[in-house]
Design a protein around this nucleic acid. Sequence first.
RNA 1: GGAGGGGUCGCAUAGUGGUCUAGUGCGGCGGUCUUGAAAACCGCUAUAGCCGCAAGGUUAUCGUGGGUUCGAAUCCCACCCCCUCCGCCA
Length: 424
Amino acid sequence: MLDIRYIKENKETVKKALHDKQLEGTVDIDELVNLHDTYSELLRKVELHRNLRNSLSKDISRVSPEEKAKLLDEAKNVKEELQEMEEELKNLKERIDGMMLWVPNVPAADVPYGENEEGNKVIKQDGTLPEFTFKPKDHLDLGESLGIIDTKRGAKLGGFRSYFLAGKGMLLEQAILRFALDHMIQQGFTPMNVPVMLDKKYFVGTGYFPWGSEDHYTTQEGQALVGTAEVSLTSYYADEVLDESQLPVLLTGQSPCFRREVGGYGKDTKGVFRVHYFTKVEQVVLLPEGEDLSREWHDKMLGYAEDILKALRLPYRVLLMCTGDMGAGQRKKYDIETWFPSQESYKETHSDSYFLEFQARRLNIRYKDREGKLKYVSTINNTVAATPRLLAAVLENYQQEDGSVSVPEVLRSYTGFDKIEPAR
RNA sequence: GGAGGGGUCGCAUAGUGGUCUAGUGCGGCGGUCUUGAAAACCGCUAUAGCCGCAAGGUUAUCGUGGGUUCGAAUCCCACCCCCUCCGCCA
């Protein structure tokens, strides 16, 4: 959420953000500003009227019985007038609040303009592409021949985009996750196990709602299932006031992630690349205000994710996402894409975004600065490792001519084995 | 799921319709005293908005949302959360 004062003073900037993020038509900024002006004017009138009511009430309690009757009549009139005005005020407020939720964050100055993913810029590439003396299999073929990925039975039980991981595949997944978690702990992050069914307000708070509500499952109780631990971790301090000395808050959490993947029916249909349920280690940072600081941490957190890929010796590249391919709430976003030999292309495995105060305003997370002034924190989040997608990358990149898959060296102390061989 | 108790200022607690403009204690900040400190004493001690150059005034907020009333922390309704006990359960 942006400050209404900012929106009023920077109408054209906000309109441009709507346009650049391909969100035109979702909210009318002129209408919003006009409504808010009307609201402010009415609010002033209402407050004057409340003042009148309050002073009349006070008089009634002090005055003699004879005078009382007269004042009571007057007070009743004021009350009725006030009720009408307050009704209108409430309606205005609801409309404004509803519209405010649709106002996106303004992209940072260095975010390139683009209508879709084609506008993204590759800004970094790392790792040597593996060379195979044979035609590399895709992760599903590998997983099936190794007996570690079973999408057929997954689909039998849970429908399309469900899967089983079995045996050493399951253990390798756990190794990746634990390795990733350990790396973040080494960076000073606090590991967290988080709730994954949350009140919808936290999805609004993190900016997943209203834009992405279609992609979330809901419970009978009206909660939604998280698509990422970011929602839980970022909301951890919702409605709280931190002291500046507590910042930066560094959290890492592992959680199941649930995504309906509506609108993506034809996309990535093979294997376990795009699934309804996966596991992810996420990193979230809360910072004092200041864009320079956020940018510094944004890059630093990108580095933590790169560390994982480097340690796994997986080739990857980093994309600076364009306006049309970033989230409504995001200020700037990097995606990391990891090499998938079977497709001879890089595929998204990580996403790193900073928000400035956008999420903190919605979630009401503030801190007291050194002068005792209350300010909103700035938030950033990034993937550390998401499986089975990253597992799939490991399988493909580490496959051997004999059909086996060797285990990345850094994971061997976690797995206890150094290769996965074809099932008999 | 059932029964009972409870949610008030940073913390603890008082407050059953009108000086509640929310009392008191603790903590915190400032001051007096002191060589210094402690103790004692005095003062201050929320957030957001509006009007105002300022001083100040004003509106809202006692878990949340409705309602009753001229007036609600206080009465009524719904919901949320916490505690105790019972049931169920990894």
